[in-house]
């Protein structure tokens, strides 16, 4: 059976940790390892931060949208904003690339997502926004004990 949730919230940075806990609480239902939970929290942080500071340029009147579904041990996450979008996706996904070096950004957001997820797809349209599709196979209870 599939379990689904959809969430949207104001694009302000204090909601980053809110988004992290929400996704973590949703995933916790299938009792993953702490490591997996930490990885997924990190991934959510990176994507949500990107939406807030890049997508909405920290303007705060936009919204960030997250949907999550779990079917068996397969987690799918979609994180979306209606911000400025990304014109050169290939460049954006390069490790260390950042368009905001003045904010001391590491340029590692996409690299982290790719590292912690089994599949990362990014769809973005300048002026319309950015959507990140993430997939991750979790090792729930069954998988560890068997």
């Amino acid at each position: 059976m599939q379990n689904r949730m959809e969430l949207s919230f104001s694009a302000i940075s204090s909601n980053e940790s809110f988004a992290r806990v929400t996704v973590a609480a949703f995933i916790a239902q299938v009792d993953p390892t702490m490591e997996e939970l930490t990885e997924m929290k990190t991934v959510v942080s990176e994507a949500v931060t990107n939406s807030i500071i890049h997508g909405y340029q920290s303007q705060s009147d936009g919204k960030v949208y997250i949907s999550a579904s779990i079917e068996g041990e397969c987690l799918e996450l979609v994180i979306r904003d209606e911000g400025i979008g990304i014109s050169d996706l290939e460049e954006a996904r390069q490790p260390l690339f950042t368009s905001k070096p003045e904010l001391e950004r590491s340029g590692m957001g996409f690299t982290i997502m790719e590292n912690f997820c089994d599949d990362v797809r990014v769809v973005s349209e300048p002026m319309l926004g950015t959507t990140i599709y993430l997939k991750k196979q979790l090792s729930t209870k069954k998988a560890i004990y068997n």
Partner: peptide, 18 residues
């Protein structure tokens, strides 16, 4: 033993840590 193994392996379950 299984629990010890899980802890050492860094794969502590969320339920336990919570």
């Amino acid at each position: 033993e299984i629990q010890r193994f899980l802890r050492d392996d860094g794969t502590v379950k969320v339920s336990r840590s919570i």
